[in-house]
């Protein structure tokens, strides 16, 4: 049996473009230095899997509005704090007196709301299928307890239509294992019929290298393929309990992806029965059209159409300490990862 490393090292076939669509994959690939051990024919592209990076500026504007104009306490994952909005980030709002609290779990935001009945608490619900169940559990819990001071500002997204939108951006996808842990593998298997190849990958060094080796081997025939390389966590059926919960609380909707525009039916929003927990309705927020720096090429970076280093803002106007585009904000953002880990030795 050849090891994954041997298969990768000895690869000398045609050019293979592999897109990872999970920010944690991006992060681990950089942290481990995996690009550095790949032969030149294998190119890894960082796709739109970082919920921070695909969150449009207008969403941050809404959160800032809730905090500064409506006096709500914003509970958020740490990732969103520095994402630039049209005028300011949440960190900027905080320095103007906004209450912004970092939480580990949406359920912690519910606890905070219960303990602070005099405050309106809004949880910023971003993230893909992995994170949606946690947000749904939070809404369910708040509803069961009748908490009138908890709501969510939704920007949840789902991957299936994004894969279709990205078809042709790469020869194979490294599917995001923790999304598949919830959704199962049927969607990705179904993509094979559309000519889209990919493997479900875990996140340890072993798992990422194994997934790449499997892509190399299965690519040889030229036929589209699918393989689950993360079976210790990902079951074909996913998590039926999570899927049932999500379906009970949320329904599909069109969603705007920063840099990619609106992808039909690629988002989730609360069902009408839970409208009382929708911050947009509760605070009657006006429609917000966010503005991004027109020179920012995050959208093309996310589609694999250009590299971070091709953007003229990269490393000059846009750095991790002063991000312009969302891809520079999160540690797992393609540009941030490129800036922090990529600029070394021979590039």
């Amino acid at each position: 049996m050849e090891s994954a490393k041997q298969i990768i090292d000895s690869y000398n076939g045609r050019k293979l473009r592999v897109m990872e669509v999970c920010g944690t994959h991006t992060h681990e690939i950089f942290r481990l230095g995996i690009r550095r051990i790949l032969p030149p024919q294998i190119e890894l592209i960082s796709g739109p899997g970082c919920p921070v990076c695909v969150t449009p500026a207008g969403y941050i504007d809404e959160a800032v509005m809730l905090a500064l104009e409506h006096g709500a306490v914003i509970c958020t994952f740490g990732d969103l704090i520095r994402v630039p909005g049209s005028e300011m980030s949440l960190a900027g709002a905080r320095s103007k007196g906004a209450a912004v609290k970092t939480v580990y779990s949406p359920l912690d935001a519910v606890d905070f709301a219960r303990e602070n009945p005099d405050k309106q608490v809004v949880f910023l619900a971003v993230g893909f299928e992995t994170t949606v169940p946690a947000a749904c559990l939070a809404v369910k819990k708040a509803a069961a307890e009748g908490l009138a001071n908890f709501s969510i500002l939704g920007a949840n997204k789902t991957m299936p239509n994004a894969y279709k939108a990205l078809k042709g951006s790469a020869d194979a996808f490294l599917y995001p294992g923790h999304v598949n842990a919830i959704t199962g593998t049927a969607v990705c298997e179904g993509l094979v019929k559309l000519g889209v190849s990919g493997v479900v990958a875990g996140f340890t060094a072993d798992e990422i290298l194994t997934a790449l080796a499997v892509i190399i081997r299965l690519s040889a025939s030229g036929e589209p393929f699918f393989r689950n390389c993360y079976p210790r966590v990902v079951r074909p059926e996913g998590s039926p309990a999570a899927l049932k919960l999500m379906d009970a609380i949320m329904e599909p909707c069109d969603a705007e992806w920063r840099g990619l525009g609106v992808i039909p039916m690629s988002g989730l929003k609360l069902r009408p029965a839970f409208a009382a927990y929708d911050a947009r309705l509760k605070f009657t927020l006006p429609p917000v059209a966010g503005r991004s720096n027109p020179a920012c090429r995050c959208g093309e970076v996310l589609q694999g159409k250009c590299k971070s280093t091709d953007c003229k803002l990269f490393g000059t106007a846009c750095t991790p300490l002063h991000p312009v585009g969302a891809c520079m904000v999160s540690n797992e953002g393609a540009c941030s990862a490129y800036y922090q880990y990529g600029d070394i030795l021979n590039g």
């Binding site: 912690d108 994170t131 923790h178 340890t204 210790r232 966590v233």
Partner: peptide, 22 residues
């Protein structure tokens, strides 16, 4: 993930990778 147990883990990554490579 985010304060929620999302899946049971059935084996180590090393065992999993070995089986896939085989």
């Amino acid at each position: 993930h985010a304060g929620v147990a999302i899946a049971k883990i059935t084996e180590t990554d090393a065992d999993e990778s070995r089986k896939i490579m085989e």
